[in-house]
């Protein structure tokens, strides 16, 4: 069994003159919840379609669950579940009929099929409503059912394209909790795209940030936060006077300094290090309780990374 669920190498996809995915190389280990983050139009959905063999790559290699996409797309789809941009549910069919259709598609034997559907519907409290037409349901309920559909055949890999998009915060939180529990119970690999960075931070053990089809950051959410925070220092304590701030700003190893909510926030110049700053602050009469490299939220890190990439692009 391969240790990587997904491996892409120099993956590219062009639509006429637009390059939707640009030299994307990433690795997603088996058993990981991988968050694929990026602004609108950055190539997230196209990447999922490429990984499922629904689109052919213009260049590069894809290996999913040990299968090359060019020869093994049917095997990849057979071992995967996918919730795409839309729920993909048949609204004129009931919840039971929807799940039963897909269970039959995946050749789940009848006795197991019924047990499995019951088990999944009960797990999210929709068993009693199994006979209702899906078209009469709220968006949150439909999304829950669509997530169940992706797990129905016990896939090894699940693609979830913005599963909480358009849901109110409560419905999104409930779906997130259900998803987290189901993923833990089923022990699978998840490839998740989302705009909700707090959601990614909560669910994902590995994230990749993509902009205009290019991967611009990749790693554990904490690593990304720290990397994006870069040369920011946060100093807790007392005695941070305006004079001290002026002297700090005048230093060549400091880009900026300010007091925010009683904390001294310093942005170091590239190559700047912490000890000389600490020595200076103490020397200038400051009383330090704690010094740490500022770790922003993943959302701040994401905005920093994407913003930086925008500036670099000109």
């Amino acid at each position: 069994m391969p240790s990587l669920a997904i491996r892409t190498d120099g993956l590219s996809r062009d639509f006429a003159t637009v390059r939707a995915v640009d030299s994307l190389s990433l690795e997603v280990p088996v058993g990981t919840v991988f968050g694929f983050l990026g602004p609108n139009g950055s190539g997230k959905t196209t990447t999922i379609r490429l990984l499922l063999g629904l689109l052919a790559p213009t260049g590069g290699d894809i290996e999913v669950l040990g299968h090359d996409i060019r020869t093994g797309a049917p095997a990849i789809r057979a071992a995967s579940g996918a919730l795409m941009e839309h729920s993909g549910l048949y609204e004129r069919l009931s919840a039971w009929e929807n799940l039963e259709f897909f269970a039959r598609v995946w050749h789940i034997p009848k006795p197991e099929r019924e047990t499995r559907i019951k088990e999944l519907l009960e797990s999210i409290g929709l068993w009693e409503r199994r006979g209702e037409l899906v078209g009469t349901w709220s968006r949150g309920m439909k999304q829950k059912l669509a997530v169940l559909r992706t797990l129905l055949h016990r896939p090894r890999l699940v693609f979830l394209d913005e599963p909480t998009a358009g849901l109110d915060p409560i419905a999104a939180a409930v779906l997130r909790d259900d998803l987290l529990r189901l993923v833990a119970e089923e022990g699978l690999t998840v490839f998740l795209t989302t705009h909700n960075l707090a959601e990614a931070e909560r669910l994902c053990s590995l994230v990749g940030v993509v902009r205009r089809g290019r991967l611009i950051a990749y790693g554990h959410p904490d690593e990304i936060r720290v990397a994006a925070a870069g040369n920011h220092l946060e100093v807790s304590g007392r005695g941070f006077t305006p004079g001290m701030l002026s002297c700090l700003r005048a230093r060549s190893d400091v880009v900026g300094a300010d007091v925010i909510n009683g904390r001294l926030c310093i942005e170091l110049a590239p190559g700047g290090s912490t000890p000389p700053i600490v020595a200076f602050v103490v020397g200038a009469g400051g009383e330090i309780e704690e010094v740490r490299r500022a770790a922003d939220s993943l959302e701040d890190a994401f905005l920093n990374i994407v913003g930086e990439a925008e500036r670099d692009a000109g």
Partner: peptide, 14 residues
């Protein structure tokens, strides 16, 4: 029209 085609295509059906 009902946005179910992509899900059908993403299934194991040939």
């Amino acid at each position: 029209e009902r946005h179910t085609l992509e899900t059908l295509l993403a299934s194991r059906l040939s």
